[in-house]
Amino acid sequence: MKTLKCHVGMGEKVEADALVAKDNFSARYDLDRIKGVFSRPDHALAGESYHGKVLVFDTAKGGVASAWMLHEMKERGLFPAAILFNRANTILAQGAALANLSMCDRFDDGDVTDLIRTGDRLIVDPSVGEVTILRSG
């Protein structure tokens, strides 16, 4: 078990498996939100389901749509458990605030896409700025 410190984030404490990519993220550019999968052919996670996962990316990309879309995904019932970034952008933070989705960024120990691997079991606790790796994937 290992605990990573990060900036205090937003949303509830959650436990779920990690899905990691050294890539950036936009709900509009990258997802098929009806099927609940990454749909952009050149995205590192193309074809993967995001439902119930802790998504781990470098940063956010693209436009403003994700601010509504995280809420829309939650209402639809296909949504990630949390999103972790090296650095969030304003839109993803605003979207997480509206959707009450857990989000953290700025990790003390370096690149979060190296610190966490796909399949790791995580506890994300935004209120104190901690992500615990319960076991490796």
Binding site: A65, W68, M69, H71, E72, E75, R76
Partner: peptide
Amino acid sequence: MMGDPEAVGIGGAEF
């Protein structure tokens, strides 16, 4: 503000 129906969705419209 951006509020197109594809992004807002039914949940966003209710909001």
